[in-house]
Write a protein that binds this DNA or RNA. Structure first.
Lengths: 356, 356
DNA sequence: GGGGTTGTTTTTAACGTTAATATCAGCCGG
DNA sequence: CCGGCTGATATTAACGTTAAAAACAACCCC
């Protein structure tokens, strides 16, 4: 016989609470909590009854209450950067999407963080967010040598994982990265296989560990084939810079016939240079970029480039964080993924009718 | 004389609470709360003392506790879509950045929402999120005629604002949008001013209200000048489709000399078509796109296009939400912003040395 | 000087959850 | 049949905040 307590009835705003489920199942609130969080503390029979009530009422635990009680919000924070206008898309869009998908899959939610430019502003923003919200973990992007953010987060004891390895060989950092060296080597191998022997490289300034890494891949491939490595440029990542560097390498006494670039932006600069000289990408000079930005597929001919396995990066980052949170005593994860060479018309001498 | 209570001292994990500030200032916790939330209920002198203590201890209110107590989390949710590979960047990247910046500015935080594809999945995701987290408001993107999401959110009584107007003339919806009609008219005016009289339009299928709106702008401009409007295509938003439509319009008995497109993706398809025919963009046929995607600035020649004032959109959306939350009894905001015509080489007959 | 008004501050209770502790029933061994 | 043990469930208290109510002081008016 069902007792019709003078209870408040179904919550007015559609919010079902533990207490309501408890009443329905004829147990205490704590038992409901246990049914969900500590199943083995309950008699199987009771548990089944409780879960039925949970299902029936559509109960979902209130995260604010949980966060308050547990000091853990199941929120993962990530800071976006403003996108720079002259650059090919930095895949932030995709990255955020897959990162969030993976986070939700694992029972977290992604919260965006905003900061004034500069590392100090970013650290302050992290600290403020932590004070206010008991964020569970952070995801960093583009870590560099001696990164202040890493030091700060570590000193606070907050779990975090980074997209981009620790360039100072710090093993205690959890990171996921893409092997730029292997990628650039693959691109260089590819153009060498087309018969090119004067292969230049247009990369970033020496300060950039990422750029340095990619350059190494080109060097690897060249040395392996005893090709000269005199054609190299270290410039800022802009269309203009790529264009100018390309002109220089085509003006050389023994000019480049292939140009391997550290980014799609630079590669598009090279394309512009060819355009200005009346040369045809692919046919006259082979070009490769890096990132597989949307632009790479849209230009004519298509730009050969390296696609980063961005969805795998997102999954692995969340996995790494999950391990950290579970207090997994094993070494923090280091995951190095291989980019995929996407061959399009810009590196092929063949007919250009079907360039995608 | 300061009483040395047997208090727990400074919080162990660096979290400062109301109670600690209260003790420091020699008042009750509630007074500290009031100092921050209801300043006029306190004696100015007391308030000053409390704020000093807040400052000194670096107190920040705990949002989880607030959310629990107030049923309001200062969180705004937004659902990302997976980006489609063949499209020029949809400015999601920028949009998210500015939306979050504006949200933080106004004291909110942006939380990302994930859903299985399709409207049903999206609505379910919203409902789940609401149950769990007392989200304050939602931001929708790409609303369409008879949008189920709008109906759902409204039926739950949750504040929300939409990037994209309500196409069914629903005045009770708060929205911010960009005037595609005016933008396309400006682009058409621009090519007409270069002397073109055979101006074609490549737009989206009739289902798309957005596409319809942009097409109207082209019609407006043509009619105003008594130009023929026979050259029009309604296709899917892909490079291929743009390319094919361009070929058709260039094969016409009196071929197009200018093509106004509903997207950069379509315009890039047109560029490919010209390329295949040995025609020069700008010199032989003028092209305009829409969106000012990164690609538009990177191709040679640069693509004339319309830049959406995305940062203003973000600010206005947050503003609209803020008004809704404040219970502002005035009509929900409708904001229609003008896109800006960005002229590059693709629509200019002039010399192509400096195409950006 | 009782009763009211105003202005300031404190007390109480509650938001929904869960760790820690308490309670209770059943069982075992002596 | 008592003390101790085990397993299942219930009770208590706390996380940090704030609305509502209560308390208190100062002042004013007839």
């Amino acid at each position: 016989m069902v007792r019709q307590h003078t209870s408040r009835g179904p919550a007015p705003h559609g919010h079902v609470t533990l207490a309501q489920v408890a009443q329905r199942a004829g147990v205490s609130a704590q038992s409901v909590s246990n049914a969900l969080n500590n199943p083995d503390r309950l008699a199987p029979e009771t548990r089944k009854r409780i879960l039925a009530a949970v299902e029936e009422l559509g109960y979902e635990p209130n995260l604010s209450a949980r966060a308050l009680r547990n000091r853990s919000s199941s929120l993962i924070a990530f800071k976006m950067r403003p996108s720079r206008p002259d650059k090919a898309s930095l895949l932030m869009d995709d990255f955020l999407y897959v990162l969030n998908a993976a986070a939700v899959e694992a029972g977290y939610h992604l919260i965006l963080c905003h900061a004034e430019d500069g590392p100090a502003g970013e650290i302050k923003a992290y600290r403020d967010l932590l004070k206010k919200t008991s964020i569970d973990a952070f995801v960093l992007a583009e870590t560099h040598h001696n990164d202040d953010r890493v030091a700060a987060l570590r000193s606070w004891g907050v779990p975090f994982a980074s997209f981009g390895r620790s360039w100072d060989g710090d093993d205690s950092l959890a990171w996921v990265d893409v092997d730029g060296r292997a990628g650039t080597r693959a691109a260089t191998d590819h153009v060498a296989a087309q018969g090119h022997t004067r292969i230049g490289h247009i990369g970033w300034l020496a300060e950039s560990e990422l750029g340095q890494d990619r350059r190494e891949g080109w060097l690897d491939a060249c040395r392996e084939r005893d090709l000269e490595t005199d054609l190299q440029a270290a410039v800022v990542d802009s269309l203009e810079a790529g264009c100018q560097a390309a002109h220089r390498m085509l003006d050389a006494s023994r000019p480049a016939t292939a140009l391997v670039c550290a980014s799609d932006t630079l590669a598009l600069g090279v394309m512009r240079a060819l355009h200005e000289r009346g040369l045809r990408p692919g046919v006259d000079v082979a070009i490769t970029g890096y990132d597989d930005s949307p632009t790479a597929a849209l230009v004519s001919p298509g730009l050969t480039t390296l696609r980063q396995p961005i969805d795998e990066v997102g999954r692995q980052l969340i996995q790494a964080i999950d391990n950290l949170m579970a207090g997994d005593p094993r070494q923090p994860q280091h995951v190095l993924l291989e980019p995929e060479l996407v061959v399009r018309g810009s590196s092929l001498p063949g007919p250009r009718t079907h360039t995608s």
